[in-house]
Design a protein around this nucleic acid. Structure first.
Length: 376
RNA sequence: GGAGGGGUAGCGAAGUGGCUAAACGCGGUAGACUGUAAAUCUAUUCCUUCGGGUUCGGCAGUUCGAAUCUGCCCCCCUCCA
């Protein structure tokens, strides 16, 4: 495809790993890769202003087609001048297609060849998503990057199920790209195929034939073991074009992010930092901190002495715990700022390391210090 | 002074003879969370050396058995004088 102002400029590839450093050019600005993308499902990264998210060093942020379609509706976003203008985010955005809701709202949907019928989680209304309808909605929402409608396949799933689903996702991809006409919006295809190497390879190759503006690896981070997730990346990445962005969907814990980057991933998104922050859990250079813990009651030190975020520079654990305990919105905001800034700063460090061909060492150093083998 | 009502675990509140160490909620403590149905969910919350021990205002009874029945006492609330 030939999109205005959208391309990935790869400036360096790490000598020892597949990690790449580059600049993603988009209609709403240039951003460096690899990058971590915070999630703002309904047009807001929960508890934060767009300016605060940007101040954390964010590049692209996400919104969700299913949720925006329900409220306020794509026509309103279109009238507002697009999602970036509507929510006043000073940077590029991406909309997920609703493919994840096929997974997360599994009890409320039915899949057919034609598309997915959801029973709205808000009021039970019947919502039909075909690849064509999703393209129409995403083009109206107007993010810089739209995602093709897919089925995020649950794990584990049988070979036969994954094969049928993946072939259907490919047919949906073809139908979607056929009706995608906005030249100022990139469209990414999504590689499915579960844990099966031949299906991942086939799916990747078929998508590449369709010539998307970027490629995502989906069906990851949904409860599968870590090594399975890494294999899913490996099974697909080698069949993706070097010069197109590669997006690992749903990944937001420290080890998955760094392992993804090592495997040649450019973009990752996750709700994890914002969700766990709201629930009192923080990622720090020295592992996870649960700010609810009684032991922080009189701890007047910063959350993470090595963190440069607004929260760590200005507030103590005792105060953050207090805000959490009394359920103040400001506390959720400070904690969310920290987690987002933490992950973004880790990825910033990764970019510097890639440029200097020391990404492997950087990754090992960060993970060793973090300590928690779960990685988040 | 008279007439009612009530005192149950940190708090609120069920229970009114055995299945009750005692529902439920709050509070407390700990944990989970990965393309957001998530300011949500889970576990735990009398003591314990895990054998057991001590509980339902207090004391004394009835009973094989009492938070639950009886008597007296203490305290709280409402209304009338």
């Amino acid at each position: 495809m030939n999109k205005e102002n959208f391309y990935l400029e790869i400036l360096h590839v790490d000598k020892k790993t597949k990690a790449r450093y580059g600049i993603l050019h988009t209609p709403h600005g240039d951003v460096e890769t690899p990058m971590f993308m915070p999630v703002g499902t309904v047009g807001s990264v929960k508890t934060l202003s767009p300016e605060e998210v940007k101040a954390c060093g964010s590049g692209v942020i996400l919104a969700n087609t299913y949720h925006i379609h329900l409220r306020p509706g794509e026509d309103i976003v279109d009238k507002a001048g697009g999602i970036q203008k509507f929510m006043n985010y000073p940077g590029p955005m991406l909309t997920d297609s609703g493919g994840f809701q096929v997974f997360s709202l599994a009890e409320k949907r039915n899949i057919t060849e034609e598309g997915v019928t959801f029973k709205s989680h808000l009021n039970g209304d019947k919502i039909f998503f075909s690849p064509e309808i999703v393209m129409d909605i995403e083009q109206k929402i107007g993010a810089d990057i739209a995602m093709s409608l897919d089925e995020c396949i649950k794990y584990p799933a049988t070979y036969d199920y994954v094969k049928d689903s993946t072939l259907r996702t490919l047919r949906w991809a073809k139908r979607g790209i056929a009706v995608h006409t906005r030249k100022d919006q990139a469209l990414f295809g999504i590689v499915q195929g579960g844990e099966y190497p031949d299906l991942r390879k086939y799916c990747a190759e078929e998508l590449v034939k369709m010539d998307f503006d970027g490629y995502a690896i989906g069906g990851t981070s949904i409860g599968e073991p870590k090594d399975v997730c890494f294999k899913m990346i490996d099974y697909a990445v080698d069949y993706l074009p070097f010069d197109k962005p590669r997006y690992l969907m749903g990944v937001g814990s420290l080890d998955y992010i760094l392992e993804g980057i090592a495997r040649g991933i450019d973009m990752m998104d996750c709700v994890l930092p914002t969700r766990i922050a709201r629930h009192g859990t923080l990622m720090t250079h020295f592992g996870r901190v649960n700010i609810k813990n009684e032991k922080y009651k009189e701890d007047f030190t910063p959350l993470d002495p090595e963190c440069d975020c607004y929260t760590c520079k200005n507030y103590t654990k005792a105060y953050l715990r207090h805000l959490y305990v009394v359920n103040e919105a400001f506390g959720q905001r400070l904690l969310s700022i920290h987690n987002i800034r933490f992950l973004i700063s880790i990825v910033e460090g990764a970019r510097e390391a890639i440029k200097e061909d020391r990404f492997e060492e950087y990754k090992n150093e960060i993970l060793a210090k973090y300590g928690d083998k779960r990685g988040f």
